[in-house]
C-alpha cells in the first residue's frame, strides 16, 4: 500500500515537473523529436532496401537442362533427386517440357516458327528443363553443382558470375544501411541523454533537497525516470505521425514502386505501425536511461 502510494506520487510529480520546467522539457522533447525523425527515415530506407534486394534475389532461378534422350520415368526420378537436396524451395521446382518451350519460342518469332515447326519431338534439339528456386542465394553455386551431378542432367545455368556479384553488392548495401541505422540510434541515445542531463543539471539543487529531507535514492530517481519516459513518449508523437501518414502517402503516390517495377516498396500496413512502435520504444528507453544516468551522478557523495 505504502509502495503504491509513493509510486503514485512519483508519477504525479513527474507530470507536474514536465510542465513546471516546461522550457527545459521542450528542449528535450524537440531533441527527441528531431533525432527520432532522422531515425525513422533511416529505418524506412534501410528496410525498403532490404526488402527490394530480397525480392530481386528471390527471382534468381537455376535452370537444369535435361538430357535429350531422357524418359518420362527418368524425369520423375530426377525430380525426386532435386527435391531431396538441401537449399531447395520444394514447391518451386517447375518442369518445362521441351515441346512447351518450343511452342513458346515459335510463338515469339516467325523465324523460330519456320524452323522448329518441322521438328518432331524426337528430332528437336531443345532440352526439357527444371526451373529451381533456392532458399538461400548465398549457397546457389554449391546447390547448382549438386544438381549438375545428378544423372541425366546435362547442364545447369543460373547466371553464374552475375548472381554472385549481385548478391555481394546487395549484401554490402544491406550491411551498410543496417550499420547506419544502428549508428543513428546510438547517436540519438547520446544526444537525448545529454540534453536530459543538461536539463537535470539545472535541478541539482532540487535533488540535494530531496536527499536532505530523507528521500531514498530510488525515491529521487523514480520521478526523473518517469519524467524521461513522458518526454520520450511526447517526443515520439511527431515522428510516429510522420512515419504512419508520411509513408502511406509516399507509398500511394508512387503506387507501391519506386522508379521501376523492380523496386517495390513495403506495404504501409503493418510496416509503418511496427516502425512507429520501434520509435516509441526507442524514445521511452532513451528518455528513461538518459534521466536515470543524469540523476545518478548527483546521488553519490
Amino acid at each position: 500500500m505504502k509502495a503504491f502510494r509513493i509510486l503514485g506520487r512519483n508519477i504525479r510529480d513527474s507530470f507536474k515537473s514536465v510542465f513546471r520546467n516546461f522550457s527545459l522539457s521542450l528542449a528535450s522533447i524537440s531533441c527527441i523529436t528531431i533525432t527520432l525523425v532522422v531515425v525513422a527515415v533511416s529505418i524506412v530506407l534501410s528496410l525498403n532496401v532490404n526488402n527490394f534486394t530480397k525480392i530481386i534475389e528471390k527471382d534468381v532461378t537455376i535452370v537444369a537442362f535435361l538430357d535429350l534422350d531422357i524418359t518420362d520415368d527418368e524425369i520423375k526420378d530426377v525430380y525426386e533427386q532435386i527435391i531431396a537436396l538441401d537449399n531447395i524451395e520444394k514447391e518451386n521446382v517447375v518442369f518445362m517440357d521441351k515441346m512447351d518451350i518450343s511452342k513458346d519460342m515459335m510463338a515469339s518469332s516467325p523465324t523460330f516458327n519456320n524452323i522448329m515447326s518441322r521438328w518432331t519431338k524426337e528430332e528437336s534439339p531443345i532440352q526439357s528443363t527444371y526451373q529451381i528456386k533456392v532458399t538461400d542465394i548465398n549457397f546457389i553455386k554449391k546447390t547448382a553443382d549438386e544438381i549438375s551431378d545428378i544423372d541425366k542432367i546435362d547442364v545447369v545455368k543460373y547466371g553464374e558470375g552475375m548472381v554472385e556479384q549481385l548478391v555481394s553488392v546487395f549484401d554490402v548495401v544491406r550491411k551498410v544501411s543496417f550499420a547506419i541505422v544502428i549508428a543513428l540510434i546510438v547517436v540519438t541515445a547520446f544526444l537525448i541523454a545529454n540534453t536530459i542531463k543538461i536539463t537535470i543539471m539545472s535541478r541539482k539543487r532540487e535533488i540535494s533537497i530531496m536527499r536532505l529531507v530523507g528521500a531514498s535514492n530510488i525515491n529521487i530517481k523514480l520521478p526523473f525516470i518517469f519524467e524521461g519516459l513522458i518526454l520520450g513518449v511526447i517526443g515520439s508523437i511527431i515522428p510516429i505521425i510522420i512515419t504512419i501518414y508520411g509513408y502511406t502517402a509516399l507509398y500511394n503516390h508512387f503506387n507501391g514502386q519506386l522508379f521501376t517495377q523492380f523496386i517495390k516498396l513495403i506495404k504501409p500496413t503493418p510496416f509503418a505501425y511496427y516502425t512507429s512502435l520501434v520509435l516509441l520504444v526507442i524514445g521511452m528507453l532513451v528518455g528513461m536511461f538518459g534521466s536515470s544516468r543524469a540523476v545518478k551522478k548527483y546521488l553519490k557523495i
Partner: peptide
C-alpha cells in the same frame, strides 16, 4: 552506505542560511 543515507536524514532536520526550498 550512500544508498542508506536517507535513514539518517529522516531522523534529522536541517535548516540552511539560503532556505533550500523547492522553488516550483
Amino acid at each position: 552506505k550512500n544508498r542508506k543515507v536517507y535513514k539518517l536524514r529522516r531522523k534529522i532536520g536541517v535548516v540552511f542560511q539560503d532556505y533550500q526550498l523547492l522553488p516550483n
